[in-house]
């Protein structure tokens, strides 16, 4: 922490939205977030990868809903009462991500972000970096947890799917 504090500059603060998929906590840049909606069964689409759950109506626009866990290669999320959809804007296109539970909005320092270890065996990495945050829990003081910051551009549907579209 000391190094981070030394290099801390006010401009490098950023807000992230944290959420869970399974037992793992993820974060995305707050600026990309449009809204958080309750889970609603989307209209399924034919001829798309399994992680695209379908499309939903977001104020008159047809927006795809992505099972983020499957997209990242984890076990598909089970829908429960706290399941929700994070609607984000990636390069001007909107997409909804199904997540297990939205946790918090936290402020982190850009300097605190560590590069993701290059262990991603899949295609290109969708993890922009790792950061430690303190959890707002009632009891434990040492409730630090690691957050995987997602690289939204790498998650862009249009980018990944151009070959499938044909």
């Amino acid at each position: 922490m000391t190094i981070a504090e030394e290099t801390e500059t006010e401009t490098d603060e950023r807000k992230i939205v944290t959420f869970t998929l399974g037992h793992q906590m993820f974060g995305i840049d707050m600026r990309a977030l449009i809204e958080i909606r309750e889970w609603e069964e989307p209209t399924p689409l034919p001829s798309v990868p399994l992680y695209i759950k379908g499309v939903t109506n977001l104020r008159g626009s047809v927006v795809p809903v992505v099972g983020l866990a499957e997209r990242l290669g984890w076990e598909p999320s089970q829908i429960h009462s706290r399941s929700c959809i994070l609607v984000v804007s990636i390069a001007g296109k909107q997409a909804g991500f199904l997540v297990d539970e939205v946790a918090d909005i936290v402020v982190i320092n850009g300097g605190d972000i560590q590069p993701a270890p290059d262990v991603d065996v899949n295609d290109e990495s969708v993890i922009a970096g790792l950061v430690k945050i303190e959890r707002r829990t009632k009891d434990a003081e040492d409730a630090e947890t690691m957050v995987l910051l997602l690289d939204l551009d790498a998650l862009s549907l249009t980018r990944h799917l151009t070959d499938i579209a044909a």
């Binding site: 209209t43 034919p46 695209i52 795809p64 296109k93 249009t158 579209a165």
Partner: peptide, 17 residues
């Protein structure tokens, strides 16, 4: 007609939504 391309990509067999 709402285009699927706005946020996704065209899907064969579908003219939109």
């Amino acid at each position: 007609i709402k285009s699927l391309e706005d946020n996704l990509h065209p899907i064969r067999g579908l003219g939109g939504a």
